[in-house]
Write a protein that binds this DNA or RNA. Sequence first.
DNA 1: TGCCAATACGTGTTATAACAGCTATTGTTG
DNA 2: CAACAATAGCTGTTATAACACGTATTGGCA
Lengths: 155, 155
Amino acid sequence: MPGRLQAEIKQNKPFPHPPAEALLSILRTAAVLEHHLGEGLKSYGITTTQYNVLRILRGAGQNGMCGREVAERLVSRVPDVSRLLDRMEELGLIKRDRDPEDRRHVTARIKEKGLAVLEQATPELEALVLRRFSRLDPEGLQRLIAALEDVRSVG
Amino acid sequence: MPGRLQAEIKQNKPFPHPPAEALLSILRTAAVLEHHLGEGLKSYGITTTQYNVLRILRGAGQNGMCGREVAERLVSRVPDVSRLLDRMEELGLIKRDRDPEDRRHVTARIKEKGLAVLEQATPELEALVLRRFSRLDPEGLQRLIAALEDVRSVG
DNA sequence: TGCCAATACGTGTTATAACAGCTATTGTTG
DNA sequence: CAACAATAGCTGTTATAACACGTATTGGCA
């Protein structure tokens, strides 16, 4: 079998070595998933990054969280959290207040509208994710997770 | 073990279910790899997307390739190939000529400078990739590739 | 206390991604 | 052959990512 990723990106030559194929597999799969998730969220008017921020802030509850903490918890590094939160505040999804204890911090909290969007969008995303991974059994999932963990932990 | 991805993104609660963890693993790993590759390419003045285009055009040889074909072969979907190729032409990496056979097509070809950049950058990237995947044995690599293939092929 | 580094944000700017719409060229079909 | 659809590419615009730098606030230390 010539490998389906080769067909997907219309590559004729065989891959020089498996690590390169694995690399491309990861990048391409992530691109596909990101695109798919983005499409699913489009009707809610938010991006995947914004969805993640909402989940993070919901997890923080009424205490809220400052911008740096949000940035640390994001899946992919975002060097411009200020304006990301700006936009979300404009959309009415979150609010921000300067922390009176340490006036350098700005504490962000999720608002009702943000919670509502999260609750509406999540079931759809869950279903989407379940379908995506439906061909992998529990053991396959764990192996996949562990392998990716190995890739990241090399640094 | 509480799972290292949870520590990485400072998540305290356990993941609701393995597919969600797998999804985040893929997205996060891709982000890390993309960033890492981007850093490696920075000294050559090109992005990972441009590097991919150079590889694609080198593969096409003197026949070159039209923009639509390049787009199809890219790892992640790029809806704006015209300006991507614009920039690469400005950098002197490629050249473009309108195809006299079918004047709708614009055939792109790699230039000497593009080949030179490719030859300089590739060994560094290869080393980087090999190190990244060094903790996976051949079987682990094949399983990873197959699992990601399963995820993509659900559509 | 006064200086200085560190921290957390904000801002300015450029580059690129994403989306929609437009033009030129070719193929198709009545 | 004329009209029309399909294809390939370009352009305009907005939004976002990425980077560098500036500002306010705090904490540490001589």
